[in-house]
Design a protein around this nucleic acid. Structure first.
Lengths: 224, 224
DNA sequence: CGGTGACCGTTCGGATTTCGTTAGGACGAG
DNA sequence: CTCGTCCTAACGAAATCCGAACGGTCACCG
């Protein structure tokens, strides 16, 4: 069970890491909103404990961003106890709201209650990288929450690359898988579709982070 | 959305009934533990708001009894704010714990958060989008209150699309599900029926909002 | 150091496929 | 016969595919 803790107070972070770690939880930490988002994407936590008063992004923005691609339970921790703050956070997508100071026992019990509610997703047919998520089963691609439209050929190429994630896919493999066994040499259109995929999925299409080219060999998809 | 409120304080009961009723919730009440259990069985609420300090059964016993047969979200309301009380209630199966006094807004937000988490019942007999309602079990479609008449083929197509909501349904799947396994390629009638369905269900048939087409791949029903 | 060629990314535009829609005929039930 | 449903045919519109060409980068070599 992995938990992401986002708080700007180093002391709080340390205390929670120790408390939760002692209960056998796998703890990941972040000290500001941006880092929290990145960590949520990278490490796929089972529960997120989020402090609202962080520098950078507001807590609300972090919640909404997470909700854009994930259903992970979010437990908000905040010094503010006004009911309006609670309503805003909960309606943004948070699942629980605890005001400081709180007891470690209560936090743990609430975490248990939350994780009880989310029966481990059977299998994960969805791949996430950057602000993009790809759902292989329902053929849905979203970026920043908005859905991205792919043509059939683009989809087939992405599918092949994702299936061989982190591995090199030769040009020939790609051609035969997408266009059929008789196609074996690229006459130029493979480069074309890779270009379009990067334009639609990469944060900076000119400096690909996920859809990489291996000169002379082929292509490789990686999340690292 | 039906809510069961169990509290021994008549004033609190009345206040909650009014508050929740004003938000469009269907409210059922009970004044002691036994009555709460009975009501939970009888009326199948979508959310239970449970006061711990009731005569008769203890709140914990009520929670455990409910959990014996139901996964309905339980929100505990209590005057006791000791962390031990919270832990006990949450570990017994409660999903949230609010201490009195609390604001109505917060309670409502927490109820919304809980019901958001409630897994959609496996077979959802009715689907609504725009001003259209489709009752899968009784094969009735209404639009703006008036009933819409669908031909058998139109109905079968709509049913398949609704069953795979938000997912892409390939042309081939649609054909085999509606016309039989031997039909595998579209000779034109699929487009025809989609056109007719849109004419009957879409607010603007020329700019579909729910019955979307994915060029080269198939169709998709979505409410978003 | 400049030239050269291989390789890759990108743009453009026309060919091709796919889609939406209308019109009308075939077929069976009442 | 009449009506409702299913299906074929046809055509304009839209989306997609893909060939061709241009520019950039990099390794290699004279």
């Amino acid at each position: 069970m992995k938990i992401l803790i986002a708080d700007d107070d180093p002391q709080m972070l340390r205390a929670l890491r120790i408390t939760l770690g002692a209960r056998g939880y796998d703890v990941v930490t972040a000290a500001d909103g941006r880092a929290a988002l990145d960590a949520a994407i990278e490490s796929h936590p089972d529960v997120v404990v989020l402090d609202l008063g962080m520098p950078g992004l507001t807590g609300i923005e972090v919640i909404e961003a997470i909700r854009g691609w994930s259903q992970v339970p979010v437990l908000v921790v905040s010094g503010r106890s006004e009911s309006w703050d609670k309503v805003e956070a909960l309606d943004a997508g948070a699942d629980d709201y605890v005001t400081k100071p709180f007891s470690a026992d209560e936090l743990l019990a609430r975490i248990r209650a939350l994780s009880r509610r989310t029966p481990a997703p059977a299998d994960e047919p969805t791949v996430s990288f950057g602000d993009v998520t790809v759902d292989l089963s329902s053929h849905v691609v979203t970026r920043d929450g908005a859905s991205v439209r792919l043509t059939p050929t683009e989809w087939r190429i992405l599918e092949v690359l994702l299936r061989h994630r982190d591995k090199l896919v030769t040009r020939e493999t790609l051609l035969t898988e997408v266009w059929g066994p008789q196609y074996t040499t690229d006459t130029g259109y493979l480069r074309l579709y890779l270009s379009q995929l990067r334009k639609k999925l990469e944060p900076e299409p000119s400096a690909p982070r996920y859809l990489l080219t291996e000169a002379g060999m082929g292509y490789r998809f990686t999340t690292a």
